[in-house]
Design a protein around this nucleic acid. Structure first.
Lengths: 236, 236
DNA sequence: ACCTGAACACCGTTCAAGT
DNA sequence: ACCTGAACACCGTTCAAGT
């Protein structure tokens, strides 16, 4: 039982890291903490405890807590987009929808990501994260037959739609269990609340309450992509 | 000099409020602090100092700091949408564009709003703020000739686009001075950075760098609205 | 009913000191 | 060069006490 500790003291270093701390390790742990406990769980103390290090080490490798959050966001987004370079046999429309759905699913898997993506974009509107997403979408905008003068506007529209849509669905879906009972209960409660709204001030809400109660997030998200792709200018 | 204080002691209460604190007052002060110093400036201590009260009063009238932020968001959004009920002579397309631009401008005036709008929507995806925006847009979707079965999807698409687009432009524009030198400098720096990207990995970014450098935020935002309205299904 | 404000627990960040 | 961790300043929240 206790032999191990005594007989091979060089193999086991029970308390502290014996390797240099890497930036990637820190970011990886951060993502894990965020996935488990949400943004409020990511305290510097939680990170240093998991890594058995001091707070200064995080500052040395990454920077402030905010920069750690940005790094985690960039890591997740980059990984998602990386895994979507293949599959070239699709039509341009399918390819765009594929990238969009990959981002959609990433937000479902990492609920903290919706908020952080917005913050990232507010602060670095044309930074690495935006660049990656633009490139992944824009590539296929070209192939779609959109005239060159409209490439930037067209790609912006698709990307902005994805970012906005993804925020709203971050909570409704609630992970992989798309049709779970929690979701339907939530929709029912919301439908009831909408029916309580004064009809003369909110006629439209009353007219869509049934559609809202029965809608599917993923399907609605795709419908939006289709609407935008349909509206893009084409050269033919 | 000192007469006033002595002669009319009931008129002047020098140190403390003599009126009851209202929820609206608190929210108003919160918005003002946010506009001046951003989200980080909104501390409970800053609010209580401005109102010459104690922290408990805020909790009694509003709740936590987060609820205060939500209340500020709701107040601003509601005010913006309220001021857009008139002008019925527009075409439905113009009306939708008008609401969209009003929200766009609101974000420019209240830079903290982009982030907070996302957080609000992540936490209360179908709450009051979403309801107000949906109603303001949805009304005109009907008039546009979109078949009833698509009303919810169509409105969602427009709203999600607005929310996403507005986030990215929160910083680039930087308030009312749309064409300020700061902005052009920022675009030039970004363009230079994009040109440094490896062309084989980012061919698309290289192809749009000039468009990005010369684009106008507001115009691009409108272009997106137009694309979506064009793509909506119509009964005719 | 409404407000006060001291007290508490917790947090991000720094930096002199170590190796 | 890289890491440690005590110390600091600051923050949101609570709650017994007041009016």
């Amino acid at each position: 039982m206790w032999h191990d500790e005594v007989m091979s003291p060089t193999v086991r270093r029970p308390q502290r890291r014996n390797q240099v701390l890497s930036r990637d390790q820190i970011v990886e742990v951060a993502v894990d903490i965020l996935d488990t406990g949400g943004e409020s769980a990511l305290t510097l103390r939680a990170v240093t405890e998991r890594l058995a290090t001091g707070s200064g080490a995080i500052y040395y490798r990454v920077g402030t807590r905010d920069e750690l959050l940005d790094a985690a966001t960039e890591a997740v987004i980059t990984a998602v987009l990386m895994s979507h370079v293949g599959g070239k046999s699709d039509t341009p429309s399918d390819a765009i929808t594929g990238v969009a759905l990959a981002l959609f699913d990433a937000i479902a898997d990492h609920r903290w990501l919706a908020t952080r993506l917005t913050i990232q974009i507010v602060r670095h509107p044309l930074g690495q994260v935006t660049v990656s997403i633009f490139e992944a979408i824009g590539r296929h905008i070209q192939a779609l037959g959109v005239p060159q003068t409209s490439w930037f506007d067209a790609t912006s529209t698709v990307v902005h739609y994805i970012l906005g849509a993804v925020s709203q669905h971050a909570r409704v879906g609630g992970g992989a269990t798309e049709g779970g009972p929690d979701r339907q209960e939530f929709l029912d409660v919301t439908a009831a609340a909408w029916r309580e709204l004064p009809p003369e001030r909110y006629p439209f809400m009353h007219s869509i309450v049934d559609q809202m109660r029965t809608h599917q997030d993923r399907q609605q998200f795709r419908a939006g992509i289709t609407i935008i792709l349909t509206g893009l200018p084409r050269t033919r």
